[in-house]
């Protein structure tokens, strides 16, 4: 069939070639990624990480699947709703699922909203359309639950 030496060459050459392609694609991709991030967006991201929001929510589909996807949260819920959640001094408790009361300041809430808007405006190859607005059917259901 084939020898151990040939199998070793298959491993070494295959790894080298695919890794080289991976690095080339990485450079090509990252050249197109904007790095001039506005200060409020960067501060919002810092708050997002500092409070481990990803430990419950998802953003761009990445997170813990316990709380809603936030990629298009500003479109879906509107800025005033999101801000009231962020500054709330008591635990937010939508339909029984609790959120930690972070009690963000106005400025911190604005930074987080800037971060959400920045994400929400990104071209995510179609995923941004999946995190759509709540359907009319669901809105009816929500009213009946209230």
């Amino acid at each position: 069939m084939f020898t151990k030496q040939q199998a070793k060459m298959f491993f070494l050459v295959g790894t080298f070639v695919t890794f080289a392609i991976f690095i080339a694609l990485t450079i090509y991709s990252l050249k197109q990624v904007r790095t001039d991030i506005p200060q409020d967006v960067a501060s919002g991201k810092h708050l997002w990480e500092k409070n481990n929001c990803m430990g419950c929510h998802t953003i761009m589909g990445e997170g813990a699947y316990y709380a809603p996807e936030l990629t298009r949260v500003i479109d879906r819920r509107g800025e005033p709703y999101v801000k009231s959640v962020l500054v709330s001094p008591t635990p937010w408790n939508p339909k029984g699922r609790k959120m930690v009361a972070y009690g963000f300041s106005e400025e911190e809430a604005d930074d987080l909203i800037a971060f959400f808007k920045w994400i929400g405006n990104k071209d995510l190859n179609g995923f941004e359309k999946v995190d759509r607005k709540v359907s009319p059917l669901s809105k009816d259901l929500m009213k009946s639950n209230d």
Binding site: A7, F10, F11, G14, T15, T18, F19, I21, F22, L25, Y28, S29, L30, Q32, V33, M60, G61, E62, K122, D123, L124, N125, G126, F127
Partner: peptide
């Protein structure tokens, strides 16, 4: 060999929807 041949470029499935091309 098969692991790296598929797995390295397979990283791409995490890049579908994060804002890269």
């Amino acid at each position: 060999g098969l692991t790296f041949l598929s797995g390295i470029l397979g990283t791409g499935h995490h890049y579908y929807y994060i804002g890269v091309n």
